[in-house]
Design a protein around this nucleic acid. Structure first.
Lengths: 120, 120
DNA sequence: CCGTATCCTCATCGATACTG
DNA sequence: CAGTATCGATGAGGATACGG
């Protein structure tokens, strides 16, 4: 449970996961990123990307010194390990909402891995 | 990506996942829940639990009408399907932070499931 | 192109006190 | 026990404009 909270601290907020998701597709530049993460403002993107860099999830690289400057953001290996998290979130978000009509179709077996997670 | 955002909408905030995690261990009463979800106030627990009920993630049952009242919160089957999400978050939160020193130890293979998620 | 500076609003969260 | 009421702090997030 502590580790779930830890993860939530690093990934909390509206934008961090969507940014990482975009970068899973490969390195991106600032404007590119802003286009893919629909709805984010330059201010928020700048701020979030800064935090993600501090936490070692991505790397920021300035390509040229002259104007116009080019900056590339690349996911670190550590950020890459978030893939299972995003995948789980994605799978869950895709679920139909008619679970109440067909509850028997949704089955999750616990007892093994469950104990480890719940006990932590 | 839309589904990741959908999931984030339902699970956003500081407390929803920790509450669900606690309920994965079985039905709980209000006070029990407040004890297990360390740091949450009665106000927040009340509010979060209400939202989770509206979204069909848990069920609220009043056990007795006389005082002292007993209320039990039980995870719905739909809420149960969040287990993979919590597990992924938990696994990720457990990772050592020395990834920078040993980047080669962290390997994630993409290319199959990756394409589906990134394309969504 | 890549941001930062301001200003602003609103939701989130917390503390404390109180009720059925 | 299971909450609600009230007040207040904080910060996330957005709009707009501007700078290197």
């Amino acid at each position: 449970m502590r580790s779930v909270r830890d993860a939530l601290d690093l990934l909390g907020g509206k934008w961090k996961l969507p940014i990482i998701l975009a970068l899973l597709g490969g390195p991106k530049r600032f404007k590119q990123l802003q286009r893919e993460v629909v709805g984010i403002t330059a201010k928020m993107l700048s701020k979030e990307v800064k935090e993600l860099e501090i936490n070692g999830l991505l790397r920021r690289q300035v390509q040229a010194e002259a104007a116009p400057v080019a900056v590339t953001y690349t996911l670190e290996a550590y950020g890459d390990t978030l893939f299972p998290v995003i995948e789980a979130l994605h799978d869950w978000g895709r679920q139909p909402r008619n679970h109440i009509m067909h509850p028997q179709e949704i089955v999750v077996e616990k007892t093994e891995a469950f104990e480890q997670v719940a006990a932590a």
